[in-house]
Design a protein around this nucleic acid. Structure first.
Length: 511
RNA sequence: GGCCCCGUCGUCUAGAGGCCUAGGACACGGCCCUUUCAAGGCCGCGACACGGGUUCGAAUCCCGUCGGGGUCACCA
């Protein structure tokens, strides 16, 4: 069944299952992507697929996806109606389910009555039809039926959860859940059991909110003569700074958290420079798409998420995919919910970015420049990437350095910086002019030579380096901040540097 | 409300009765480095929810309290 909503993946849902679920899945199945499908349940296949695809390398969401095929299809619940109905019939034949001819209002009334009388609601089964005659009688009244499970009213359902250990639920607490709607279609709890059987699911690894519907699934499985799969219920991911389940709808509230806000606004700046249309549906730090758009590394995200609720020991933090597969175990999953910490995710991102070879960084960053409307030569980009070093924390950060690509006459100046470093200091303009002349005479224009030239200039003038260097920076880059000035000058080249300094001098003199 | 789950620094966690004056990471604060911004180095701050047991000894075991969360659909 395709989810009604578009391909959105929250960190709360798919991400957790990816980093935690995918890992043992791949481990147990002994292979990668293709095996993730049979190991999970069929629900929200599309979202799951989206996340896997994204985290496998931010590839486009190929819907053709041969990789998603497999021998136990079909994988869409919309194509499996017949299999579900057959299962319902088996349950009916065995007396483990029944036709319920009660109307929605009648059921609701019973439930409300129980609530008023402060007792647990148990279906009266007043409109239960187990024989053809009963069925005919209700139908004659013009009633339609749903199929409900006929849950045991005594005893316990016991099973072992791979994360939580032995579980014991009283059958009497279970409702007679609907498994087939009056229109003949089936519900999740029935469908997922059938899917799990058809797809040879051995381990169901899912969020803890499903813990309480496990007994009914075990009931259905046994009724169908299926050995129930092993269950592992993961705690959910909580909101930053609270224990509530993370939700993509609460972005406005999360924005009050300074760390969350920082991550969001950083992404927002990049999106704005790209002219991206942003919507809360996808441009939201709670959703993986956000990180893809801003240019995060999948490895960083997966590694961060892996540690959100699991650890190997008291010190190991960084894992390659292979190491994850090798070391992961459900037994070490933490039982309590873990809050999403955007600041720590950023720290992982910075770490992985620092590890990235230059060529890969360049390749990662180029599409951002192109999307922002620049057509830079890769060599220059490489120089910038090297000079900027770890200042580029996500691929989108390259946009902090577009000043190198804009035409000299289009360079914009930060007014405050210009004022502080050029207009205001009494000697600044004169010094800048002198330095400009030195630059004009420079024979070598590499960073090392420029460094020497600057120091010679400072010595000759008897000034402190701070009196000139900032003025030069603002004159050639327009900004007060950036990477090493000599790298910046070298990348721009002599001609452009002179042009920009002249331009700044004219601007300072109000011409 | 019934049922269920959970409770160690702000956050993620290590901890299976003595190795714990509770370890690591992120964040935070300070210092150093420095042409700005980053980064880096060093130092620091900082927790066993509470109350009873059991024990020579408890963060670890038991009971209770409190707190947080999940779930109770013809959603998935």
């Amino acid at each position: 069944m395709l989810p009604a909503r578009p391909a959105i993946c929250t960190l709360a849902g798919c991400a957790r299952r990816y980093s935690i679920g995918f890992t043992p899945a791949a481990k147990m199945a002994g292979s990668s992507c293709a095996s993730t499908i049979p190991i999970k349940s069929a629900m929200s296949t599309k979202r799951w697929r989206r996340f896997c695809t994204v985290c496998a390398g931010w590839e486009s969401t190929g819907t053709k996806g041969q990789r998603w095929g497999g021998e136990f299809g079909p994988y869409y619940q919309s194509q499996k109606g017949k299999a579900y109905q057959e299962a319902v019939q088996v349950l009916l034949d065995k007396g483990l389910a029944y036709y319920d001819f009660a109307t929605a209002e009648e059921t609701k009334a019973e439930r409300e009555l129980a609530e008023r009388e402060k007792r647990a609601y148990v279906s009266s089964r007043r409109f239960m039809a187990e024989t053809a005659e009963q069925k005919a009688k209700f139908e004659a009244e013009g009633r339609t039926a749903v199929v409900r499970l006929k849950m045991p009213r005594e005893g316990y359902c016991e099973f072992t959860d791979l994360i939580r250990g032995p579980m014991k639920f009283a059958w009497a607490e279970e409702q007679d859940h609907v498994i087939q709607r009056s229109n003949g279609t089936c519900l999740y709890s029935l469908a997922s059991v059938v899917d799990d059987r058809d797809m040879r699911i051995t381990h169901v690894i899912r969020a803890e909110e499903h813990l309480s519907n496990t007994p009914r699934q075990i009931f259905i499985a046994r009724g169908l003569g299926i050995e129930p799969p092993q269950f592992a219920h993961l705690p959910f991911v909580a909101e930053p700074g609270s224990r509530n389940k993370l939700s993509k709808r609460k972005i406005a509230q999360y924005l009050k958290n300074p760390d969350f806000k920082r991550v969001y606004e950083h992404g927002r700046r990049i999106a704005d420079r790209l002219g991206l249309q942003v919507s809360d549906e996808t441009f939201n730090p709670v959703i993986v798409d956000f990180y893809e758009q801003v240019g995060y590394l999948p490895d960083a995200i997966v590694n961060y998420l892996l540690l959100l609720g699991w650890s190997l020991d008291d010190k190991t933090e960084f894992f390659t995919r292979d190491e994850m597969f090798q070391h992961f175990s459900l037994e070490r999953v933490v039982k309590s919910a873990a809050s999403f910490d955007p600041a720590k995710l950023s720290a992982f991102q910075e770490h992985y970015m620092r590890q990235l070879p230059i060529e890969q960084k360049v390749a990662m960053v180029l599409p951002y420049l192109e999307r922002a409307g620049f057509h830079p030569v890769p060599k220059t980009v490489e120089q910038i990437v090297i000079a900027a070093d770890d200042r580029i924390k996500t691929a989108g950060d390259i946009l902090d350095y577009v000043d190198f690509f804009v035409a000299d006459e289009d360079l914009t100046y930060d007014d405050k910086a210009f004022e502080k470093r050029i207009t205001k200091p009494p000697q600044a303009i004169a010094l800048l002019r002198k330095f400009r002349d030195r630059l004009a005479q420079a024979e070598a224009f590499d960073a090392g030579s420029l460094d020497k030239l600057m120091h010679q200039f400072v010595e000759d003038e008897g000034i402190k380096i701070g009196e000139i260097i900032h003025a030069v920076r603002v004159a050639v880059t327009g900004k007060a901040v950036g990477f090493g000035l000599f790298d910046a000058l070298a990348i721009l080249g002599q001609e452009r540097c002179l042009k920009r300094i002249d331009q700044a001098l004219r601007r300072a003199e109000g011409r």
